[in-house]
């Protein structure tokens, strides 16, 4: 079974009848790095939240590894939200012990090595760190798991170009060949070189799901250029 995530007829309607996802169908395979791309309000974050069980679908279903979002799926999905979500009062060492306790696939030695590479002390409390460093800590914790699916929502949005390179390097060097990485971002040119496939979303519908190679061959342009053409205002 090569399908990791299967989305069937998924619809999400918020209050005041705002349709965020409109009868979406999607299959996410194993072993790929996939870019989830679309303009603001296209439904990227809604889809990600639904996969993680943080929202309730209005209609349709999501199957991750054959099961609906729940404890089983959460044990194989490693999710990085687009916000700082750890308790500020915690020390990094406490976070490591927290992740070790709850995620069987968490590798504390890997997290410690990455923290040491970046010169971040394990004894530091999160509230003493800058926003950029907090984001790096979050990414390190998420990528230190041997998950089957990594979902990274805007992982490089708030950091400087040097940190972006580090983050991309971390993503590529830490995911295993059978796992899939789903990255949602606006900064396509920065991540294009690491992507295998892209998914374009507009108004809660899938506009395109293709390999990067195909887009380059058939359209004769980069994903970034094609994105600008498709979503031109």
């Amino acid at each position: 079974m090569n399908e990791l995530v299967v989305v069937n007829n998924l619809t999400k309607v918020y209050e005041k009848k705002k349709i965020a996802l409109d009868h979406m169908n999607l299959i996410i395979p194993r072993g790929k790095i996939i870019g989830l791309l679309g303009p603001n309000g296209s439904g990227k974050t809604t889809l990600i939240k639904l996969v993680n069980g943080l929202l309730t679908a209005t209609e349709g279903e999501i199957l991750i590894n054959g099961s609906q979002p729940g404890p089983e799926s959460k044990s194989c999905v490693s999710y990085l939200p687009e916000r700082t979500y750890f308790q500020n009062s915690m020390k990094i060492s406490e976070l490591i012990s927290f992740f070790t306790d709850f995620y069987k696939d968490f590798r504390p030695e890997r997290a410690k090595m990455m923290l040491s590479n970046l010169g971040i002390h394990e004894d530091a409390r999160l509230k003493t760190l800058s926003k950029g460093t907090k984001e790096k800590v979050q990414l390190i914790m998420v990528m230190s798991r041997e998950a089957q699916l990594y979902i990274l929502d805007e992982p490089i949005a708030g950091v400087d170009p040097a940190a972006r390179d580090y983050i991309l390097k971390t993503i590529i060097s830490n995911y295993n060949e059978n796992a899939t990485v789903l990255i949602s971002t606006h900064l396509i040119s920065d991540i294009e070189k690491v992507l295998d496939e892209v998914i374009f979303i507009r108004n809660g519908r899938i506009l395109l799901h293709d390999t990067v190679e195909n887009i380059r061959e058939c359209k004769g342009k980069s994903v970034d250029a094609y994105f600008r053409e498709v979503f031109a205002c």
Binding site: L54, K74, P81, F86
Partner: peptide, 13 residues
Amino acid sequence: TDEGYLTHTLPVS
């Protein structure tokens, strides 16, 4: 709140 993103993604019911 934001902390819920960790709470509700733990592999627990």
